Simulated assay, not measured.
Amino acid sequence: MTNSPELLPTAVPPRPPLHPPVRRVLFVAFDAVGLLDLSGAQTVFWAATKAMEARGLPGYAPCTASLHGGLVRSAEGLELHTTALADLAGLAVDTIVVPGSPHISAVLDRSAPLVDWLRRAAGSARRTVSVCSGAFLLAAAGLLDGKRTATHWAMCDMLQQRFPALQIDRDAIFVHEGAVWTSAGVTAGIDLALALVKADCGHTVAMEVARELVVFLKRPGGQSQFSVLLESQTQGADSFDALHLWLGENLARTDLTVECLAEQARMSPRNFARVYKQKTGRTPAKAVEVLRLEAARRLLEESTDNVDQIASRCGFGMEERMRVSFQRHLGVAPRDYRRRFARGDGAAA
């Protein structure tokens, strides 16, 4: 006797998993790798896994691998045990993290096989991440062409010279461009890893991790790596220290032209413009804009003045001009910046 069609069992579609699978995070190691570039981000994922497992949820499965496996000596001298990349073939990788090195130029010259692996592997991973000068390896693999990119501030010029197609963001702590994330130097990899954890696991888990590691969660990509005045000092532009201090007290003025600044520096306008650009790497007009931007950032973080008042105090004149400057340099509007960074609940809109 045959079963009638209505009595035949129907196919039951498989149920989706109740929770997402464990995310495999692959840290790429190589000789002279920067230890904190690797371990800082790795510790964030380890702490996030503890927090997730405490909630009965899967976390991350970190793995440190190198081209040939075995012991890899970091730039600081510590040897790391690594898995060979070939041994991971066929395994699903969620995130590839490429640390940097203080000797990145020499690393890059001998890393053609690793660069080839990165070029292939990035296509199957959900996202690819660089810390500090790890951006050089991503760039060599063609993963950053035409993209806005962050790296250690001291290596921006070298990165731009080697890879002219990149759009170097010299100020950002980290940059997110599609499936690729890049960060500034060393500890900025912790900030980037916290942002990845927040995207994956939510704000509460990321905040819990930040508390455990005693770091700030609120330092997303828009915040600058360092102050303009500190940068000018490191570049040997101390001859303009007095001018910069004067500018800091006079940003609200509307006549901060080359002629005005040259007079303050007791130089001819032409010679001042030439020497200032040579010493600081910025034109006088760009320096005024960035100093105003920095002052506005501090007021948005610390004061209760409204945005219009801050724009006026910092010499932008009107909010729209300040908004354009914030978007150009930080990729965020002033009001959004305040929501991210304000240090108290009393900040005005």
Rank of each mutant, 00 (worst) to 15 (best):
L67F: 12
G70Q: 13
L71N: 14
L71T: 07
E76M: 04
G77R: 01
L78D: 02
E79Y: 01
E79K: 06
L80Q: 08
L80P: 15
L80F: 15
L85F: 04
L85Q: 04
A86L: 05
D87C: 09
L88I: 15
T95C: 13
T95M: 07
T95L: 13
I96P: 03
V97K: 02
G100T: 09
S101A: 07
P102V: 10
H103W: 04
H103Q: 10
S105A: 15
L108D: 09
L108T: 14
D109A: 15
S111G: 01
S111V: 01
S111I: 00
P113R: 04
V115K: 06
V115F: 03
D116V: 10
W117D: 10
L118W: 02
L118D: 06
R120G: 12
A121E: 08
A121M: 04
S124L: 03
S124N: 09
A125M: 05
A125Q: 02
R127K: 06
T128Q: 11
G134K: 03
A135L: 06
L137R: 05
L138R: 04
A139C: 14
A140V: 01
D145T: 03
G146C: 12
G146P: 07
T149W: 10
H152M: 03
H152K: 11
M155V: 12
C156M: 13
D157R: 12
M158Y: 12
M158H: 10
Q160N: 03
Q160C: 09
Q160K: 05
Q161L: 12
Q161C: 08
R162L: 04
R162S: 04
R162E: 04
R162H: 01
R162V: 00
A165C: 13
L166F: 13
Q167A: 11
Q167H: 15
I168L: 15
D171V: 09
I173F: 01
I173P: 03
V175K: 01
G178W: 00
V180K: 00
W181Y: 09
W181F: 12
S183I: 11
A184H: 02
A188Q: 05
A188I: 00
G189I: 10
L192P: 09
L194D: 02
A195S: 08
A195R: 14
V197W: 10
